[in-house]
Nucleic acid binder design. Sequence first.
DNA 1: GCACCTGTTGCGCAGGTGTCCAACAGCGAT
DNA 2: ATCGCTGTTGGACACCTGCGCAACAGGTGC
Lengths: 229, 229
Amino acid sequence: MARMTPPERRAAIVAAALEVMLHKGIAATTVRDVADRMGTSSGLVHHYFASMDDLLAAAFEQAATADLAVTTAAVEAQTGPVERLRAFFATYARAEQDWAFQLWLDAWAEAARRPTLRETSQRLNVKWQQVLAQCIRDGVAAGAFVCPDPDGAAWRILSLLDGLALQSVAHRVPIDRAAVITWSAGFAEAELALPAGALAGPAGPASVTAAAAAAATPAAGRAAPRRPG
Amino acid sequence: MARMTPPERRAAIVAAALEVMLHKGIAATTVRDVADRMGTSSGLVHHYFASMDDLLAAAFEQAATADLAVTTAAVEAQTGPVERLRAFFATYARAEQDWAFQLWLDAWAEAARRPTLRETSQRLNVKWQQVLAQCIRDGVAAGAFVCPDPDGAAWRILSLLDGLALQSVAHRVPIDRAAVITWSAGFAEAELALPAGALAGPAGPASVTAAAAAAATPAAGRAAPRRPG
DNA sequence: GCACCTGTTGCGCAGGTGTCCAACAGCGAT
DNA sequence: ATCGCTGTTGGACACCTGCGCAACAGGTGC
C-alpha cells in the first residue's frame, strides 16, 4: 500500500477500526478486519498499536470525543441559558446517532472486562456531565433557573437520556425524537424550577419544534414519547 | 460424569452457562468453558443445544425470566396500587442486581448481532413494561391515580430506571439506591398525577424507607441521588 | 555509488473457536 | 445373554485469533 506519514497512517488505522467496530461490534473486531479494510497487512497495524486493546480504546476515544465536540459546539453556538439547554437535548437525540449509540452500548458492556476501555468510557461520561452541569450553572448564575445541585441534576438528566436511547437502540423501539426531547425537557424543567414548557420552545432544527408542538398532549402539560404498546 | 435425565442435564448446562456468562461476559463464553464448569465434555453441550447461540439465548432467557418473576411476585404481594408501585421500584433497584444488570447490558449490546438474543431481550422488555403498565391501569381503575397513557408511562419510567442502572454498572458510579427509588418515584408521581411524596412512603424493606427519609431534600420536595461530581 | 532508515509485507507460530462424530457405558427389554 | 437405546466421551476438523519477525521497498544523506 501507498506509503503514509506516521500520523496519517495512525489516523487511517483508527478510522478503519471504527468502521469495523460499528458493524461487527467491538468484541468481534479483529486486527485482520482492520487491515483488510485498509487494504494493508495485519503486521502494519501492530507496528502502530502495541495491542488490540490499545487500538480499540484509541478508536472508541476518537469517536466519543468527536460526539462530545459536536454537542459542545452546538451548545456554545447559543447564547441564552435556556437556548443552550435546548441545543443540548436536540444534539443528544439527533437522528444520526443511532449507530453511534450502538458503539457506546458496546463499550459500556465491554468496559466491565477491558480496563482501558472502562477508563476511557468513565472519563468521557464525566466530561459530558460537566458540559451539561456548566450549562446549568451558567443559567443559575444568570438567574434563568434555580438548581441547588447542578452536578446531580446533570447526572440525573443524562441517565434519563441514556435510558431512552437504550430503549431505542437495544430494543429497536421506534421513537419520535422530537417527543423525546420535549418529554426529557419536562424532567429538566422540574430539576431547574422552570415553568412547564419553558424548554419546549423553538429549538435548533425547525422540524424539532413543529413535531414537538404536534406531539403535545394535555397530560401534565408536556409531550410524551410512546412505545407501540 | 454421572448420568442425568434430559431435563436435569439441560438445566445443569443452562446453569453452568449462566455462571460463566456472568463473570466472563456473554461474548467471551465458550462451549468448553461451560463443559469444564460442569466437569463434562464439550460434546455433551452440543447434544442438548444445536448451536452456541441457542445456549446463550436459553441461559439469558432463564435468568431474565427469573428476574421478572421476582419483581412480579413482590408486586403481587401488595394489595394497594401505591404499595404495588413502591414494591416495583424497590425490587428493580435491589442491591443484589448489580451482577444481573451486567448480564442485561451484555445482552443488549450483543442483541444487535445475535438475532435469537435480540428476540428474547425484546420479548422480556415488553413483559416488564406490561407488569408496570398493569400496576398503573389497576391504580387508575381504583381511582388511586390518573394516567391517560399507562403503556407510555410505563415505558418512560422503565427507560429512566434502566438509565440509572446503566450509570451505576457501566460507569461504576456508587449510588444511594434508596435515593434512586424516591427520585424515580418523583417522576412516576408526575406521570400519574400523584401528590409529591406519595410514592416515597413506607416501602417493603424497612431500610429503604429510613434511607429515603434521610435522603429527602427540600428541593422539589423529593430526594435526589448524587454522583460524585 | 553506497549505507541507512523506516514504513510495509507476508507468513509462521501457538493457541483457541464451534461443530461434528465414531466409539463407549450403562441400563431396560427381549 | 444379547440387543438396542441413549447419555456421554474425547478427540479430529477446519478455521480464526493476536502477535512476532525476517525480509523487502523506496526515499534520504553521504
